[in-house]
Design a protein around this nucleic acid. Sequence first.
DNA 1: CAACGGTTGTTCTC
DNA 2: GAGAACAACCGTTG
Length: 521
Amino acid sequence: MTHKCIHWFRKGLRLHDNPALMAALRDCKELYPVFILDPHLFDKTRVGLNRWRFLVGALTDLDRSLQKLNSRLFVVRGRPEDVFPQLFTEWKITKLTYEFDTEPYSASRDKRVTALAKEHKVEVVYKVSHTLYDIDRINEENNGKAPLTYNRMQAIVKTLGPPKKPVAAPTVEDVKGLKTPHLGNDMNYYGVPALDELGHDTLELGEEPFPGGEQEALRRLEEHMKKSGWVCSFEKPQTSPNSLSPSTTVLSPYVAFGCLSARTFWWKLTEVYQGKKHSDPPVSLHGQLLWREFFYTASVGVPNFNKMEGNPVCTQVDWDSNHDYLAAWREARTGFPFIDAIMTQLRREGWIHHLARHAVACFLTRGDLWISWEEGQKVFEELLLDGDWALNAGNWQWLSASTFFHQFFRVYSPVAFGKKTDKNGDYIKKYLPILKKFPAQYIYEPWKAPRSVQQAAGCVVGKDYPRPIVEHEVISKKNIQRMKLAYAKRSGNSDESASKKQGVKREAPSVVHMLKKKGKK
DNA sequence: CAACGGTTGTTCTC
DNA sequence: GAGAACAACCGTTG
């Protein structure tokens, strides 16, 4: 029992499957569980109220769980570079533990903190537990480059075997003989933040369908895993983007903050699958966790992954900057009820179905508004409970057909897509009650309703609800041509750079080599 | 070089 | 409800 140890929580806001926390408990006489409110990560403009509330919930839950182990959480305000030297000295710290984090900011931050720890003669221990695998290992197995297709990714992962088994949460037995000083101090002493601490208007708060925290995460996991038939037959593309209650697990916010370990989720699924016929990646629930791994791998292997410029795998597109269009999209007033309902749900609840994200992302970028995916990325990062740097950047590039996905001629219709799973428009009526009296025939395109129908519904388009800001049938065809042009330039450009790099030659598409292909057999 | 497969398009026809 | 046309991309594989 020699160490005075800080375990630094960042993501990984949990006790289960937390190997770095377990490392902190080893040979420890004084334990200080710390979370830092880094102003670079947490400010009002970057963290919307719902996501902030989720975090506060997660920290509250973590504090409670630590108290059951005769410890507590210390929430410290400030930049980690400023905070740690003070804490090292004040608490006479000898060891620092944390969970490995792949994000560029985190990596540079952790490097700086590790250097400071060294100056203070503090031993640093970190463990991989946010992802299924050590992401660097995957890239190494692929000759040092990120796999750019899911198939390739799967092949690599296969050679690595299944993910590590999760480690159990610490028990009272594990913390025997160690103490956490300042336990009895009042709540304000490094206390969990209040909801208004970032300066949000908390009056805007609605209900909380997805409260933050490890306990809620594990409860939610159990609730879904009990439905073994549902789990075994799960196919993501078959789930509905506009059901009135979520058609998927909504475990993503918990995995993003690390309230739920991806490995715990993985092995729980394995258990449920055991001996049963079940769906497989990419569409299965295991497959969803591998998608997460896929984007994490790309985010580590590709420089400037959250940007278009300087991102070697991202097609360079001449996106417009149209503030009016962007604001209309963000504020749910595009005049397309399906799009506006989704954006309303996003703003109100902080979660929307994956395919709903597809619809609004395609609409913002290559489908209709021709606005950069980086703008959408910012909005999602602020508003989504499950906002995750790697997944957000990766999926925006996917949907904008900038990389990973290239069939840019497949455009989601802001009218037709939602109808497939919600013919009556109940989802629209829920989130846009102004339209609730519209007959189903017109609910997806109210501007087509005769004046008399609009008046009878108590909603005149152009007065009570906006006219559509674009004509989808026209603009989407134009945009496909603009994408085609961007791709043609891409082939031209990469001709030089690619041949330098690895001798791969690519030519601008020639006119005639497109014979009709037969469909699948 | 050509064929193949790609989590999740739309619309029309049978 | 399945299949084809629509216009046609990429990375990977052989």
